[in-house]
Simulated assay, not measured.
Amino acid sequence: MCRWLAYAGVPISMDTLLFQPRNSLIRQSLHAQRSVVSINGDGFGLGWYGDLSRPGLYRDTMPAWSDANLRSLAEQIRSPLYFAHVRASTGTATSRLNCHPFRYGDWLFMHNGQIGGWPQVRQDVEGLIRRDLYRFREGSTDSEAFFFLALGNGLMEDPAGAFARTIAQILGLMRAEGVEEPFRMTAAASDGQRLYAVRWSSDKHSPSLYWTQGHVEGCQDGKLCLDGGGRDSVLVLSEPLDEDPGHWTEVPDASFLVAEGGQVRVEPMAPVT
């Protein structure tokens, strides 16, 4: 399973979260603590919003810990909203096009998990993607297929409803093929203004997901310095960056999260037809 983080708030340099904390995302690429696999070395990616509405992307197939350019970029890029992802493949090829985040227009999307029985349902899932969207599909992952299916289900207008409808559609295809493997996921999406995240699974064993809010003041001795009184920023991520239990709130299973203006709302989510 992959590890990811999404930040939204006052602009900060990416290395504040990617490299500096004791359990930074780059460390998680080698030693994940809350994942079924500890090493996430099948590529990585960054997506960020800057002066343009269309977000920037930097993705590569190298393990995040071995990319000589990544630290320099992370030190220099300051953004009010960015995604970062380290990948552990669940069977699809290690290629740049399969690295997260994925981009469509001004939207970013990244994912952790797996659609059970993907080789059995892949053709049917892809067949549900709207024709005008499918031509933008570049890779072979179930994650990217989920993104484009969700776009066709109204992600840009109704993110919560789009996630719920997309999950329901895929569950229907899995049942039709007699798939017994679970469907487990966490995912994040953004239009550059709001941050959305979901945690869901068909067997109640969802991948881990946490959030925190406050003013990020940097790191000291590997611990995130977070001013909880200045609630201008939100961080959503696969696992905590340090051991301070006061920093992190677990997202409940079967939940949809919305972050905007430093505020967080978490609500139940169930698949709908």
Rank of each mutant, 00 (worst) to 15 (best):
L5A: 08
D15S: 15
D15L: 07
L17K: 03
L18S: 03
P21M: 10
N23Y: 15
L25M: 11
R27V: 13
Q28E: 10
Q33A: 14
I39C: 08
N40I: 06
G43F: 03
F44V: 06
G45V: 06
W48M: 04
L52N: 12
S53R: 14
G56E: 15
G56Y: 10
G56F: 12
L57I: 15
L57F: 07
Y58K: 12
R59C: 13
S66K: 13
A74I: 03
E75M: 14
Q76H: 12
Q76G: 10
A84G: 07
H85V: 08
H85G: 06
H85T: 09
V86E: 03
A88Y: 11
T92N: 14
T92A: 11
T94M: 11
S95R: 13
R96D: 13
N98F: 08
N98L: 11
R103P: 00
F109M: 05
F109P: 01
M110L: 15
Q114R: 12
I115V: 15
G116V: 04
W118T: 01
R130S: 14
R130G: 13
R131L: 12
F136N: 10
G139M: 09
D142F: 07
G154A: 02
M156G: 00
G161N: 05
A162Y: 02
F163C: 04
F163M: 12
I167K: 00
A168P: 00
Q169H: 08
M174V: 02
R175C: 02
R175K: 15
E181A: 14
E181I: 00
A187Q: 03
A187T: 12
D191Q: 04
G192P: 02
S201H: 04
H205Y: 09
P207F: 06
L209E: 03
L209R: 01
Y210Q: 04
G214S: 09
H215D: 11
H215T: 08
V216R: 00
C219A: 14
D221G: 05
C225V: 14
C225N: 11
G230Y: 01
R231N: 13
S233P: 02
V236R: 00
L237D: 01
S238D: 06
D242N: 13
D242H: 11
W248N: 10
W248Q: 07
V251I: 15
P252Y: 08
D253Q: 15
V258I: 15
G261C: 10
